[in-house]
C-alpha cells in the first residue's frame, strides 16, 4: 500500500467537498475490492474518503411501491431485513449470496453498485428491478447508470446516497459461480411488473445488461419454455480461462430460465 490521505467525514456535504478537493480520490464504502487492490499496490488514490461515519447513508425504507436502501447499508443487513425479505425476497437472497460472511458484513450496496464490477451481483438487481440510483446531486435511472467495465454514469467525486428499487410482482436471481472466486460467471435477475418483465444479466459482458428479446417473450408467456430457444450472440461476451464466450452465452439462457422458473414457482 502506498501513502494516501484519509478522510472520515461526518456529513454528506463534508464528504462531497473532500471528494471534490482531492486530486485523485476514492470513496471508501466498505472497501471489499478497494482495500485489497491498494494492498496489492494496484490502486493508489491520493485521498481516501471513508463514508463509514456519514449520517443518513444507512438503512432500509419500504414504501408502497419501492424499497429504498441507503448506500452504506451492508449486504448482511439487506439479507436479513424482514422488510426486504417480505417486499422483494429475491433481493434479500441476492444479498445473502454475495461473497462470504466477512464480505457481507463489510461490503455495502453503494460500494458494489458504484464499482460496477462486471461479475457483481447487485447491478443485476438494480437493472432488473428498474431501480433509481440517488446521488448527492441527482437521480439516475438504472438503464442509464451502468456504462462499461468498472464504469458508470457517476461523475468524478459524485457520491451514491441510496438505491430505490421498484417492488415487483415476482422476481428471482440465479447465478452460476466462477469455480475459484465464486463471482458470477453469469447471473440472471428476472422481475415481473404486471405485464412487463425485465431480464438483467451480470457476469457476461463488460457490465450488466438487459435481454429485451427474453423480456418480450416472457411478457406474453412467463415460463422457462418461452425463452428456452433464445440465445444471445457471443460476439461481445467476456471470455476467460474459466468460461468461453459460447458457454457464457449458453449459461445466460440457462440461468434466465432457472430464474423464471423460480420466480414463477
Amino acid at each position: 500500500m502506498y501513502e494516501f490521505n484519509y478522510h472520515r467525514p461526518k456529513s454528506l456535504d463534508e464528504a462531497s467537498s473532500a471528494a471534490k478537493d482531492a486530486e485523485d480520490r476514492k470513496i471508501l464504502a466498505g472497501g471489499m475490492t478497494l482495500i485489497p487492490s491498494m494492498k496489492l499496490r494496484l490502486a493508489a488514490p491520493s485521498d481516501l474518503i471513508d463514508l463509514a461515519d456519514v449520517d443518513g447513508l444507512k438503512g432500509i425504507t419500504v414504501g408502497s411501491d419501492t424499497v429504498t436502501i441507503g448506500a452504506m447499508t451492508r449486504h448482511y443487513d439487506v439479507q436479513t431485513s424482514a422488510d426486504v425479505q417480505k417486499a422483494i425476497p429475491a433481493l434479500a437472497a441476492l444479498a445473502g449470496g454475495i461473497g462470504d460472511p466477512s464480505v457481507r458484513h463489510r461490503g455495502t450496496i453503494g460500494g458494489s453498485v458504484a464499482h460496477s464490477d462486471p461479475a457483481a451481483d447487485y447491478p443485476a438487481a438494480v437493472l432488473g428491478l428498474d431501480a433509481t440510483v440517488k446521488t448527492d446531486n441527482r437521480e439516475i435511472a438504472a438503464d442509464d447508470f451502468f456504462t462499461g467495465l468498472f464504469e458508470t454514469a457517476l461523475e468524478e467525486a459524485e457520491i451514491i446516497t441510496a438505491i430505490e428499487f421498484k417492488i415487483p410482482d415476482a422476481a428471482a436471481y440465479i447465478k452460476f459461480p466462477q469455480p475459484a472466486s465464486g463471482f458470477a460467471l453469469v447471473g440472471a435477475f428476472v422481475a415481473k411488473f404486471g405485464g412487463d418483465v425485465r431480464v438483467a444479466i451480470t457476469g457476461a459482458k463488460d457490465c450488466v445488461f438487459r435481454v429485451t428479446e427474453m423480456e418480450q417473450a416472457l411478457a406474453s408467456n412467463f415460463s422457462p419454455d418461452a425463452i428456452a430457444d433464445i440465445q444471445i450472440g457471443d460476439d461481445d461476451l467476456l471470455a476467460d480461462i474459466h468460461c468461453a464466450a459460447d458457454y457464457r452465452a449458453h449459461l445466460v439462457t440457462v440461468m434466465a430460465k432457472r430464474a423464471v422458473a423460480q420466480a414463477a414457482g
Partner: peptide, 24 residues
C-alpha cells in the same frame, strides 16, 4: 475437478496467480 495452473501461452504470465483464479 477444480485446480488448473494456467500461464498465458504467449507471454508466459501466470494467469492463475491468486485464489480469485486458482480454484482450490
Amino acid at each position: 475437478l477444480t485446480e488448473n495452473l494456467v500461464y498465458d501461452e504467449e507471454t508466459g504470465q501466470l494467469l492463475t496467480g491468486s485464489f480469485m483464479d486458482y480454484a482450490m
